[in-house]
Design a protein around this nucleic acid. Sequence first.
RNA 1: GCUCCGGUGGUGUAGUUGGUUAACAUACCCGCCUGUCACGUGGGAGAUCGCGGGUUCAAGUCCCGUCCGGAGCGCCA
Length: 584
Amino acid sequence: MLKPMRRTLYCGNLREQHAGQSVVLEGWVNRRRDLGGLIFIDLRDREGIVQVVVSPDRACFAEANKVRSEWVVRIEGEVRSRPAEQTNSKIKTGRVEVVANRLEVLSEARTPPFPIDAAWRGEEDQTVNEEVRLKNRVMDLRRRRLHDNLRLRHKVIAAIYRFLDQEGFISVETPYLTRSTPEGARDFLVPSRLEPGHFYALPQSPQLFKQMLMVAGYDRYFQIARCFRDEDLRADRQPDFTQLDLEMSFVTQDDLIDLNERLAAYVVRETTGVELPLPFPRLTYAEVMNRYGSDKPDLRFGLEFSDVTQAFQGGEFRAFASAETVKVLAVPRLLPRKEIEELEAIAKSKGAAGLAWARIENGALTGGISKFIPSSLREQVTLTEGQTLLLVAGSWRKTVESLGAVRLELGRRLGLIEPGFKFLWVVDFPLLEWDEDNGRWTYMHHPFTSPNLDDLHLLETDPGQVRAYAYDFVFNGSEAGGGSIRIHRRDLQERMFAQLGIGPAEAQEKFGFLLEALSYGAPPHGGIAWGLDRFVANLAGEESIREVIAFPKNKEGKETLTGAPALVDEGQLATVGLVVRGDS
RNA sequence: GCUCCGGUGGUGUAGUUGGUUAACAUACCCGCCUGUCACGUGGGAGAUCGCGGGUUCAAGUCCCGUCCGGAGCGCCA
């Protein structure tokens, strides 16, 4: 009986300093190269790969002959420095190799459905259809890309804990089985067995619990919290996702912004080594909408709009003469007609009536609406040779949002997006916005957001003018977080509910527990929630948050690996008092 | 619910104005090979082109429908 071997270190951690040592390695066969009289095995574990040499004079040569990709083996051998001409600079262990004395197959493996090995040996992974990847997620997770992303995610979370602990924060867990509050997003419901016909809801965020923790005096709370929203998915949206949720008492908006940008800078430094200049730019909602047409502008490129409403006002170009807003984007290229039409389709999808254009060629405006462009336009925009002007006119909101979508598309198409991390704060959001469909005012952030006290007197008389103490945290054009100072006085919270059309009875029924908490001495407080998945995806340079989530759902909300959602048997349904209608 | 894009051996791709045996790389299987590191080399197997229908002498290719996937719109306090 051979004496049992135990792993001595990770394959990927072998270095020249280990030369001469006997080691035991356990891992997967990344690749096998059979030269006939000599076999090389690249052995892999989570830390990387190392080359193992098996020569024909060893008893284990026959075993090494059988081994295939992704088999799990244990190897005992001796570390040896490689001669200079035999080193491999593409891998960190490339200056050493392990001469095998013993090789034991721990598991055989089927041929993998797609290549696993490339990135581990320093090459680029082949792109594989995401459907295939998700169905074979275990094998996909075995690839280096996912290893790197999930470890980055861990490092981000660990850094968050270190920083917030240092700053005196306490992490508290709040429940996942909660009460449905049918405001905002659609809830996931969980039927109750003990009370058939009644339902829990999975939390869309820990919002109300953290506010109650503030009333209870915890002062500084945070949680890495899973949140659930039953809405359609996107590249940056999953039905269950992770927030960094935090809340502080006796603070102002500036205190929160300061703490959070220091946290962001710390996390980015600790995980990537990049130093973010502080403070981050702070732009008002009105500014970002007017200049970039988005409340989450991507500042990795310029291409700002100019307002030319005045120049066209009352002029001969009827479509623009009486428009509430006219905005122009001066694109530093002569765009072909076809491209302008594609951009127009984007503008129209965001509600623009059209996308007007003109080119500046040979010192003159030509094409499109060039003959209608008043000379006074030059007072707002600097025109230079080789530009294409793109113009939208209409209501303020539709104009800026549609031109904002065009700006973003141009940033991508023209390759204007600079590498790096661009953060900013968007502040002074409106408290309320008019809901066309329901003919009433609705909250922009959530109903617990405090109005800016300077605007409080307008709450009933001119609600649209009231600014909120609300702030969004934007990272490379994605909303990485959002927060607000909350209402901490019961009377103001009731006023707010009234303004939202939530009567006293309804307020009591749905939010009585919050109102009661507020009546027992609530401190001024505020907080923020970061979209952790988006934050990590941006750090990793990934387009989709599915790349930083181990077991994500696909576009249809299905988890194809295990097959969720799935039917359940009638007995299970009966237990919770449910019957599924055949027609649904 | 809507718009757009895609679906060809295990994987990644090519496939022209419709034309004969659906091509290439890689992976896989079997040989040969003692310094490779995407080893090399010789051979082999592997796709009814997502599915159904239509047009045509002839469809991977054109048309219609449908399924699956992705990007976006709506939606997401």
